[in-house]
Design a protein around this nucleic acid. Sequence first.
DNA 1: CGGGATCCGGATGGATACTG
DNA 2: CAGTATCCATCCGGATCCCG
Lengths: 132, 132
Amino acid sequence: MTNDKDEIPCPMELAIQLINKKWVIQIIRDMFFGKTHFSEFKEDKPGLSNKVLSGCLKNLEENGLIEKNISDIDGVVDISYNLTDHGRALNKVIYELAMYTLNEDINNKIYDDEQKKEIGEYFRDKLNIDDN
Amino acid sequence: MTNDKDEIPCPMELAIQLINKKWVIQIIRDMFFGKTHFSEFKEDKPGLSNKVLSGCLKNLEENGLIEKNISDIDGVVDISYNLTDHGRALNKVIYELAMYTLNEDINNKIYDDEQKKEIGEYFRDKLNIDDN
DNA sequence: CGGGATCCGGATGGATACTG
DNA sequence: CAGTATCCATCCGGATCCCG
């Protein structure tokens, strides 16, 4: 399953292929945090061009992680993106990535204790992680 | 903390920066699975060139995720790489990545139930994940 | 507003050859 | 065995302009 010469692919590698592109995870995180529109994904991401963003969204859609919704109400077209179940299943991965940074910030060089607590709660809330 | 205009960096992004390079996670996984030598990391990775691998290792060392050990016993030089505590703390991230693929393989298109069980156990063992 | 088309420069990756 | 040195291709990102 791992790196031996058998034919069984490594499940970690398959997962990585889905998200191992510069902006992809951040976009997915944005969606967990409530963003749905093209222009919203561009906020706070200087350096993310239209071309790259639309490429990412197309890519995510092809991989079944998000879905594109087009509504046309009285001629007002609204395009939004939402996570699919398949995309939402990445919540634990995203959570562990965030926890890694928080836990490894041993001497509070980045966050103080209060911030760590708040951030942890925020992620658990938005990512629907049940505390243990 | 997240994507708002405040100064607190997103912890997920910081974690991603460490591992968001093509071969880095696979190398870390290899180390969890027992590999320690340059030539071992190249096994089963056609397309990973010496230059890229040595760049990755250097990068990982600079980020404090691995450490390089040189032993010279009777003129026989042995260079090995090992995870640091900081690197080992990525175990849950790797685990959740693997679990994602296993869990989302709903119709057993990739793995059968037996394989999923074995792979899960293997990862938990090597990554030192305590079952719940 | 949500993109597609084009152009361009720099970073990156891979192959190969070579070295201690 | 563990790299370094070169060379080359390509990809990718960013800017800009354009379109419905």
